Amino acid sequence: MPNPLSFDPIDEAGRQWRKHWGAASAPPMMAVTSMMRAQQIILARLNAALEPHRLSFPRYEALMLLYFSREGELPLGKMGARLQVHPTSVTSLIDGLEGLGYVVRSAHPTDRRTTLATITEPGRETAAKATEDLNAIRFGTEPLSRTDVTVITDVLHELRRAAGDFVEPE
């Protein structure tokens, strides 16, 4: 991480925003900017914890998706939908995991157009160890309390739901 600034740049942006665009528009801009910066901080923490396992957070997410699947395998298309990423990104993630020996790729037994990714035993072991490491750092959320994390999750859940990110079960 670079050296800390002697001022909060988001507060300064808020001051400037209020001056040029009015008081009402500053809080949303500040909230979004804060979320984006927090995402950068947390992602850096996660990637640092995953580095000994030769994983990035996106590779970890893909590996865990396979780890939690019933059979330890999923079609690449289904992985893309669940990870909410472009098919090219899934291919790249699986290429990387395959190169590490954590995943193998195979043809679907009944659908020639579908490729499956299957977690290997080294992949399962790595997923478990990496998860222990991430749990040990509370997924990079310190110094936030459990209540803070729950409130953030609930607030962002509402934003995602309203954006059509998912449909609530009835």
Rank of each mutant, 00 (worst) to 15 (best):
129 K>G: 06
140 G>T: 03
125 E>S: 09
153 T>H: 14
138 R>L: 12
143 P>D: 06
138 R>K: 09
130 A>C: 04
126 T>W: 05
145 S>W: 05
131 T>Y: 00
155 V>K: 07
139 F>E: 03
140 G>W: 07
144 L>H: 10
153 T>C: 05
133 D>A: 15
137 I>K: 06
145 S>R: 04
136 A>W: 06
139 F>S: 01
124 R>E: 12
155 V>L: 12
147 T>M: 03
126 T>G: 00
133 D>L: 06
133 D>G: 00
136 A>R: 08
139 F>M: 11
127 A>L: 07
137 I>E: 07
128 A>G: 04
139 F>R: 02
151 V>K: 05
136 A>G: 06
137 I>M: 13
134 L>W: 01
124 R>G: 09
127 A>E: 04
145 S>P: 01
142 E>R: 14
131 T>E: 14
152 I>L: 15
130 A>S: 06
137 I>S: 06
133 D>S: 15
124 R>V: 10
122 P>G: 13
144 L>N: 03
139 F>C: 02
135 N>D: 14
144 L>W: 12
126 T>S: 12
150 T>G: 06
151 V>Y: 11
136 A>N: 04
140 G>F: 05
128 A>L: 11
151 V>H: 12
136 A>S: 10
136 A>F: 05
122 P>F: 13
124 R>S: 08
152 I>A: 12
134 L>S: 03
150 T>K: 13
132 E>P: 00
150 T>M: 11
151 V>I: 15
147 T>H: 06
127 A>F: 05
128 A>H: 08
146 R>D: 14
154 D>F: 10
139 F>N: 04
142 E>T: 12
143 P>G: 08
141 T>A: 08
133 D>W: 01
128 A>R: 10
136 A>T: 02
138 R>P: 01
155 V>N: 05
148 D>F: 03
126 T>Y: 00
149 V>F: 02
132 E>M: 10
124 R>H: 13
149 V>Q: 10
124 R>F: 13
129 K>I: 00
153 T>P: 00
127 A>V: 05
153 T>R: 14
138 R>W: 11
140 G>S: 03
131 T>M: 01
145 S>A: 08
149 V>L: 11
152 I>S: 05
131 T>L: 13
137 I>Q: 05
127 A>I: 03
126 T>D: 00
154 D>N: 15
149 V>K: 04
153 T>Y: 12
145 S>H: 10
123 G>L: 10
128 A>I: 01
133 D>K: 06
127 A>S: 07
125 E>I: 07
152 I>N: 09
127 A>R: 02
141 T>I: 04
128 A>Q: 09
145 S>D: 08
124 R>T: 11
153 T>V: 04
123 G>I: 11
144 L>Q: 02
142 E>S: 11
147 T>Q: 08
126 T>F: 02
141 T>F: 09
125 E>F: 09
143 P>M: 10
134 L>H: 01
124 R>W: 11
146 R>N: 09
152 I>M: 15
131 T>Q: 12
155 V>E: 10
148 D>V: 01
141 T>C: 06
154 D>W: 08
138 R>V: 06
137 I>A: 07
154 D>T: 14
154 D>P: 01
143 P>K: 06
150 T>A: 15
126 T>C: 13
153 T>D: 14
127 A>M: 07
131 T>K: 09
140 G>H: 02
122 P>K: 06
146 R>T: 10
145 S>Y: 12
150 T>N: 09
138 R>S: 13
126 T>E: 00
125 E>L: 14
142 E>H: 15
122 P>Y: 13
155 V>W: 05
